[in-house]
Design a protein around this nucleic acid. Structure first.
Lengths: 223, 223
DNA sequence: TTGACATAGTGTTGTTGCAACACTATCTTG
DNA sequence: CAAGATAGTGTTGCAACAACACTATGTCAA
């Protein structure tokens, strides 16, 4: 293998991705079981080294796809972790991202660098490699904060969804029940949702109107 | 000089610091004139390569001190910039920080790597090296956003300050005048300020009571 | 000494946004 | 056709916020 040499020491740079979804009305994060050292056999966030010619965000998406088979998610930079001793091998600086996806669309499969892939409820995390517990905690905090002044929650929704489903997502992330009438008022007042005209029949009760995001990618911040 | 070699290519990692202050009721940022290539003679944010054994934040503070002589500022991570071609020399990933300081305490002096140091009003920036214009724009956006739900503004204040001075800071960052009575009500309601008991005589008018932050470092987020 | 000037300091009121609250509608299933 | 389950819909009280004007206390100059 060819060597890559520099006049000054260079740290390695990785991306790590905390991909959240909601399963069974619980917030869950996607973890991979590490196939190699260090922390072999330990659960960790998907991620890996940034390639020389890709930007950080592309690297994050590539690693996520390679290790878990997941594509097409909402992705946002979270924080960069750089304590000198956070990796026992060498100095590794990690640019952490968090991502959101509707679990229905996802079929994670273990990739080359991962022995296994699985969803974990956030309140039942296993022991994690590196400082990944810290990363996840920060991501959850950010997610909760953005719920109030942005439309991140839409990242968990399928293309068409009911107001009841959307409310469940908000309730899950905030960890508390919300008033149905107030919730609908707020949401519809944002002028971000459009009725599809169809409705979804599920369970032995009245079908719910389906909505979609009216201006996809347009408005992300509220007010 | 000894070479540092790795099996895989490693990017270089730098920190860049956007240090803001308020001068003459205008928001200003500290820039250095680059002493070396690339962009020699061009204005840029202070910053530089991260040392092998320092964490990112320490690196940012060290570079700021080395290039500008400035120490003891409020510092917070902003964003990590990593487009592959953002530096013509090699792949360089920059972890950007923003910092706040009261201008009265600062006496920036050009350091080893900088030919010159100067404050620039944000509405009169020169042409900047690398993607530093983008960094500054993002930092300003973040600063404005945090003004509403945090106490970042205190980062611009001297240890003792009047409510009038504090209001001027808010008005400068938001770019609009605020109602004096409402502003004082809000601020005092936070229970973060304590009267020093003394007052400051300046100009031909009634002296103003001096305040200090009541619980330094304690509460950073409002409600 | 006094009047002009400049900022410090202080409460009330109307409005608006938000939270609390219960019933009817529509479908499925037994 | 009755029971059960979620969909869908308005009003009211309250609290937070915005709008608004005058007095207080100092300096300075005539």
């Amino acid at each position: 293998m060819t060597q890559h040499c520099y006049d000054y020491p260079h740290p390695a740079v990785t991306t790590d991705i905390a991909l959240f979804t909601i399963r069974d009305e619980r917030l869950a994060v996607l973890l991979v079981r590490r196939a190699g050292e260090p922390f072999k056999g330990c659960w960790a966030l998907p991620g890996g080294f940034v390639e020389p010619n890709e930007c950080l965000e592309d690297g994050a998406l590539r690693e996520l796809a390679e290790e878990t088979g997941v594509t097409g998610v909402y992705l946002e930079q979270l924080y960069t972790f750089g304590k000198p001793d956070r990796d026992p091998r060498e100095r590794i600086i990690s640019v952490a991202y968090y991502a959101l996806a509707p679990s229905e669309l996802l079929t994670p499969v273990a990739g080359s660098d991962a022995a296994d892939v699985a969803w974990f409820d956030l309140d039942a995390l296993p022991s994690l490699a590196f400082d990944h517990a810290e990363v996840i905690a920060l991501a959850q905090q950010r997610l909760r904060a953005k719920l109030d002044y942005s439309t991140v929650a839409f990242g968990f929704m399928q293309p068409e969804f009911t107001l009841g489903e959307l409310q469940k997502v908000y309730e899950t992330i905030r960890g508390e029940a919300l008033d149905k009438r107030n919730f609908r008022k707020h949401m519809l007042a944002l002028d971000l949702l459009a009725e599809t005209g169809t409705s979804r029949r599920v369970g032995n009760h009245r079908p719910a109107k389906l909505y979609r995001v009216a201006h996809p990618g347009a408005v992300l911040y509220i007010k």
